[in-house]
């Protein structure tokens, strides 16, 4: 056996991990860039909830009460 396979393996490891991290770091940078651009220039149309909100207020309180009760129950159990 002329070539030392372990040294070859270690070379593979550095190259492989380097590529994986390089790829993912570039991907993260572009993801951040993309979300910045999209939020700045193409914001999602907010659902115009102003009209419904007044009516929904009461229901919301009921729902919150129900959720709180459920969580309390869950913690006890």
């Amino acid at each position: 056996m002329e070539t030392n396979l372990v040294i070859e393996g270690v070379k593979f490891m550095f190259l492989g991990m380097g590529t994986v991290f390089a790829f993912l770091i570039i991907m993260i940078l572009f993801m951040n860039l993309m979300s910045y651009v999209i939020h700045k220039f193409f914001p999602e149309p907010q659902p115009s909830a102003d009209m419904q909100q007044a009516g929904a207020q009461k229901d919301n309180k009921k729902i919150i009460a129900a959720i709180t009760a459920a969580i309390a129950h869950h913690r006890q159990g």
Binding site: M1, L5, V6, G9, V10, F12
Partner: peptide, 29 residues
């Protein structure tokens, strides 16, 4: 997309691949 930096964790776990590669060639050696 909502927490991009967690992608690094997915990268680190690939050490399992390359670490084992070294292990396998060491066994062979």
């Amino acid at each position: 997309l909502s927490n991009p930096k967690t992608a690094l964790l997915g990268g680190a776990a690939q050490f399992g691949i390359f670490g084992t590669l070294v292990g396998a060639v060491a066994l062979s050696q």
